[in-house]
Simulated assay, not measured.
Amino acid sequence: MSIQVETTVNSILSVLQLPMQQVEEIVALAHKILENNLLPQQFNLQPKRIVGLIFEQPSHRTKNSFSSAAMWLGANILDLSDSYRDSRLRGESLSDFCHTAECYVDCLVVRSSNSELITQINELVKIPVINAGNGHNEHPTQAIADFSVIQKNCPDLKNLKISLIGCLQTSRCANSLALLLAPLQPRILMICPSELALKQEYQSIAQNRGATFQHSLSLSDALNDDVLYFTGGTFLEDFADISEYERYHQWFTFPLAFLKDLSPQATILHPLPRGFELSSDVDNDRRVGIFDQVRHGLAVRKAILANLLGAML
């Protein structure tokens, strides 16, 4: 497998195409939106824009936050998901579907189990394409949302210590976050069985960008970290097959006792959905930022759509 990065000005296919300055600009705009320092009427989307959605996989937060963001900006939404499935079942070429779709909408937000579909669509259309999750590869807008929360909670990002905890080999959220943070030279501790660590390809790219990786089987090694980022591990979809699920899923049941020894300055994150790897009993702990990720995710997607749709302040 190789990671192909398109150097497209408007599309967001991978965090690798986003300079840190651009990420920080998106996050700064998102923070202004969160603080109500920017309101919908301060954006000028003329003529009225239409955001197209192609979600081949189920989605709660990502699909609905893009929809909510578009509506907040005054744009309309056209859900092309059923049309895409029907088109493919009937044997229509991807090219014909895409060239038709771009007549209807101003940008496309795409999620697919096929890791190559995002790139294929982007090569076919002349409108911006946003990667809302491509297979087990990346989820760039989630990484920007996660970075937004981390930046808010850890103003000094130098020497950031972050633990990625869970089934990392299939976590597109962990992949994108590691790649995005890498230029800041973080120490990334992977807490999981070694065979479930981030794929070597992603580790190598992140290392070349400045990250340092360590590995551990013990949650106690994360007690002094700035960020504990839990991923999946208790859903069948987190694993390659059912035998792998049966072998490992119980490993990801973490006790609540670790909270009493955890640094009071730590931030606990999870991109959701969560199984039993992180109990809802922790939600009242001020260090838990799970629903901050949801709020920041919405604000980040507002900022991204505002930029891609040509909004002017």
Score class of each variant (00 low, 15 high):
Q207Y: 08
N137A: 09
D261L: 03
A101M: 08
N64Q: 11
E123A: 14
T8H: 15
L160A: 02
S2Y: 11
M71F: 12
G232M: 05
L305P: 10
S204R: 15
C192Y: 07
S14H: 11
P183G: 08
A69W: 09
F276H: 14
F147G: 04
L117P: 01
N307M: 11
S220C: 05
I150L: 03
N159S: 13
T212S: 14
Q142Y: 08
L219Q: 12
Q169N: 14
V23Q: 03
L305V: 07
I33G: 09
I304S: 04
D146V: 05
L89G: 06
G74A: 04
V109I: 15
A240V: 13
Q250H: 15
F213Q: 05
F147T: 06
V149K: 10
D96H: 02
I150H: 01
R90D: 00
R287I: 00
S194A: 12
L18M: 11
N37G: 05
S216Q: 10
A206M: 11
N10H: 15
A240D: 13
H99Q: 15
S67V: 02
M20E: 06
E201R: 15
E201K: 15
D226M: 01
P40S: 04
T8I: 00
S279N: 06
D82E: 14
V27R: 02
Q207E: 15
E92V: 00
A145R: 02
S115L: 07
G289L: 10
N175L: 09
Q207F: 05
T253S: 12
G133H: 10
M1R: 13
G135Q: 01
T8C: 14
K126S: 14
E56C: 12
Q41E: 12
F254W: 07
Q151C: 09
I290F: 12
G133W: 05
A211H: 08
L53A: 05
L308A: 07
A266N: 11
W72M: 06
T141I: 05
P128G: 04
E35N: 14
V27G: 05
S163W: 00
Q293D: 02
R209E: 07
